[in-house]
């Protein structure tokens, strides 16, 4: 079943991307065209096949000792942020209506 425009709005909302009303119809066309091309995935016999989530088959958790080491200077780490106050990231209100 192809994605509807309201489906597109829902997944955009979940992805935190504000689409304009003008952008939604074209995005629906593009996504449906790509999803159509994924069809071979559904037509292969996968009975009894285990999924592989990672190309190095025998690699499991890689752990190391917990060590104290120098890390980024705080002011340097904050230097790419759009807004900073007292050595911390500054954000607008997290609750309210808009």
């Amino acid at each position: 079943m192809p994605l509807s425009e309201s489906d597109v709005r829902a997944i955009a909302d979940y992805a935190r991307i504000a689409l304009t009303d003008e952008q939604v119809p074209q995005m629906a066309v593009d996504l449906n065209s790509i999803i159509d091309s994924l069809d071979p995935i559904r037509r292969i016999d996968l009975e009894g096949v285990e999924p592989t989530f990672h190309p190095i088959g025998d690699l499991s958790n890689v752990l190391r000792e917990d060590m104290i080491a120098p890390s980024l200077d705080r002011d340097f780490a904050l230097s790419d942020a759009g807004a900073v106050e007292d050595g911390q990231f500054l954000v607008p209100s997290i609750m309210g209506d808009e």
Binding site: R16, L19, P92, I94, M95
Partner: peptide
């Protein structure tokens, strides 16, 4: 100019 973090995030990504 966004008043809410959620709208700042989704508009910035858009």
């Amino acid at each position: 100019g966004c008043e809410l973090l959620s709208s700042q995030e989704s508009l910035s990504r858009a």
